[in-house]
Amino acid sequence: MADNNPAYEALPADLKSKVIESVEHQGQVALRCRTADQRALLENFRLSQGYDFLVDVTAMDHLGKDTEERFEIIYVLRNLTANHTFRLHVWLDESDNAIPSVFDLWDSARWGERETHDMFGIVFDGNPDLRRFLMPEDYPAFPLLKDYPLKGKEERRQFPKVVARGDRMVEEEPDTYPTSIGRQMHTPEYIEEVRRDSKPRE
């Protein structure tokens, strides 16, 4: 497992056993671990091995797929001195939905985690600034979840209408559109419907 990844080779034996899988594709290695071991591994990479550049933090949603957990958090790490890049994938359980933050190891994690929180609703424990990021602060959904449709749930139509009428500006109620806010999510029918919606146009 992970024959040619220097980051894995340099791990102490007890941490090596925490890495449950190693995938290589086109010369790039991805290590996999569980939520409980994420912090220890990342501390080792940062403090002992000098992976001083956190390139990116992001997540993947495996809703309805046959995977170990629903979420996968992805850290892209780089050692600038050794010029080596690899990824650490961390499984995250849907019901727990929280993972320790690493903002104290890399400052770039502050915004990377904040964006992942905004898009997936994943809570990074300890991150001091976990507000909404790209979406309005009271947006009713986490858009990159697989059960959220591409076109949203008609949030984009719900604004008042400003109409020019003489000197005065008049606000009108928006046209009524069918809205699906508050619908029961996470049901099989719903997921099926989302899948159907999310196919490209035929």
Binding site: N97, G121, V123, D138, P140, A141, Q158, F159, I181
Partner: peptide, 23 residues
Amino acid sequence: VPSAATLEKELEKGWRDHRSGAR
């Protein structure tokens, strides 16, 4: 830690304020 579903519910009220410009 609130789950994603609870967070969504809480946010729903605020969203009504946002779209009417009341926030």
